[in-house]
Amino acid sequence: MKKIYTLILIMIQLTVFAQDPEFSQYYAAPLYMNPAFTGTAADHRFIANYRNQWPNITTAFQTYAVSYDYNMEKLNSGFGLLVTQDKAGSANMKSTQANFQYSYKVHLKDKWMLSTGLNFGLGFRSVDYNKLVFYDQLEFDQDGIRLPPPSNLNLQNTSYFDFGAGILAYSRKIWIGVSTAHLNRPNRSLTNDEAEIPTKTSIHGGIRIPLYHGVFKRDRVAAIAPSFVYKRQGKFDQLDIGTYFLYEPVVVGLWYRGIPIKQNVRDNISQDAVVVILGFQLKTFEFSYSYDITVSDLGPISGGAHELALKFNIELATQARTKKREKFIPCPTFNK
């Protein structure tokens, strides 16, 4: 039964306009969400993300992302590299994309920053059709040997150019941004047909609230950070809303993914998952794990989703840069 389900997933990927892969820990993958986040840390930042969605289904969906970005303060600019790969199904369907990102920052009044970002990507898509079993192969020749795959599949690897942009406004405690991916609607068909990637729009924001009263000690950072992200791509839309709680070095989070005021095609509440996050945050190193508890019609049979995020921040601590750092306002999501 799992093999049949896997084959269905692959055929869906081949024939419909698939949405982009997603990360539940979306603020742990900032360059993936909005190129305007490029260079919003103090100096150098390295991030690695991994997501395993629906693990109970054989080789269902796995997503990887690795990014590096740097704040070049003299140019009011940020530069970044982002590489993502999404794997689906037993036929090893892969979508890999390498992205160069650039952002430019402007100091506004009242200690606000405005960052505009661009994303230039080169994508590659492939599938190993020799691992698929097609209808024609269910027949056998006179010697009882299964027939080879049909020769008229016309499946081939493909490459495409991708372009996106975003804007982000933030102070030391508040941030709000908008990004649009796939502005050129690239075609990534494996069969020389039309398979455009729909434009994806994301609106996201949040606030960081310090906690220094009662049981929280002043020598340890304590804060909550409620936030949201709304995404729309083609006919698909999604809302994630929740909060982080940090009591240094421990970080916990709780998120809900769904749109309760909307109904799906089966007239049920449009909801997907409740996400639980646990991690720790040090000065230059952060690690977090999250689990998606599926609350949609798919239910617990899917196995939910596991996700890991790893981040390194490397600050070049010299006296000259320390004086300049006072003029730089880092994004509150990723700094203390």
Score class of each variant (00 low, 15 high):
Asn76Trp: 08
Asn76Phe: 12
Ser77Arg: 08
Ser77Cys: 11
Gly78His: 03
Gly78Ile: 04
Phe79Glu: 01
Phe79Asp: 02
Gly80Phe: 04
Gly80Leu: 02
Leu82Ala: 11
Leu82Arg: 08
Leu82Thr: 09
Leu82Ser: 10
Val83Trp: 04
Val83Thr: 07
Val83Gln: 01
Gln85Ala: 13
Asp86Leu: 06
Gly89Leu: 02
Ala91Val: 04
Ala91Tyr: 05
Met93Asp: 02
Lys94Ile: 00
Lys94Trp: 07
Ser95Asp: 10
Thr96Ala: 08
Gln97Thr: 11
Gln97Lys: 12
Gln97His: 01
Asn99Asp: 15
Gln101Ala: 04
Gln101Val: 08
Tyr104Gln: 07
Tyr104His: 12
Val106Cys: 03
Leu108Gln: 13
Leu108His: 13
Asp110Cys: 06
Asp110Gln: 14
Asp110Phe: 13
Asp110Thr: 11
Trp112Val: 06
Trp112Lys: 10
Met113Ser: 03
Leu114Ser: 05
Ser115His: 00
Ser115Leu: 03
Thr116Arg: 03
Asn119Gly: 04
Asn119Glu: 12
Asn119Tyr: 04
Phe120Gln: 04
Gly121Asn: 09
Leu122Trp: 14
Leu122Glu: 02
Gly123Phe: 09
Gly123Arg: 06
Ser126Phe: 09
Val127Lys: 02
Val127Ser: 02
Asp128Lys: 09
Asp128Arg: 01
Asp128Trp: 00
Tyr129Val: 10
Asn130Val: 01
Lys131Ala: 07
Lys131Met: 07
Leu132Phe: 05
Leu132Val: 12
Leu132Pro: 01
Val133Glu: 10
Tyr135Leu: 12
Asp136Val: 00
Asp136Thr: 10
Gln137Cys: 12
Gln137Phe: 12
Gln137Met: 15
Gln142Met: 11
Gln142Lys: 15
Gln142Asn: 14
Asp143Arg: 09
Gly144Trp: 06
Gly144Lys: 14
Ile145Gly: 00
Ile145Gln: 12
Ile145Ser: 08
Ile145Glu: 09
Arg146Cys: 07
Arg146Glu: 09
Pro148Trp: 06
Pro149Gln: 00
Pro150Gly: 09
Ser151Trp: 00
Ser151Glu: 14
Ser151Ile: 07
Asn152Ile: 08
Leu153His: 08
Leu153Val: 09
Leu153Gly: 10
Leu153Trp: 11
Asn154Ser: 11
Asn154Glu: 14
Asn154Cys: 01
Leu155Gln: 05
Leu155Tyr: 15
Leu155Met: 15
Asn157Ala: 14
Ser159Val: 13
Tyr160Arg: 05
Asp162Val: 08
Phe163Thr: 11
Ala165Cys: 10
Ala165Asp: 08
Ile167Gln: 06
Leu168Cys: 02
Leu168Asp: 01
Ala169Tyr: 01
Tyr170Gln: 04
Arg172Asp: 14
Lys173Asn: 13
Ile174Ala: 08
Ile174Ser: 06
Trp175Arg: 04
Trp175His: 13
Ile176Phe: 15
Gly177Asn: 04
Gly177Ser: 10
Val178Leu: 15
Ser179Tyr: 02
Ser179Pro: 03
Thr180Asn: 11
Ala181Asn: 09
Ala181Phe: 06
His182Arg: 10
Leu183Asp: 08
Asn184Lys: 12
Arg185Leu: 08
Arg185Cys: 02
Asn187Tyr: 12
Asn187Glu: 13
Asn187Ser: 14
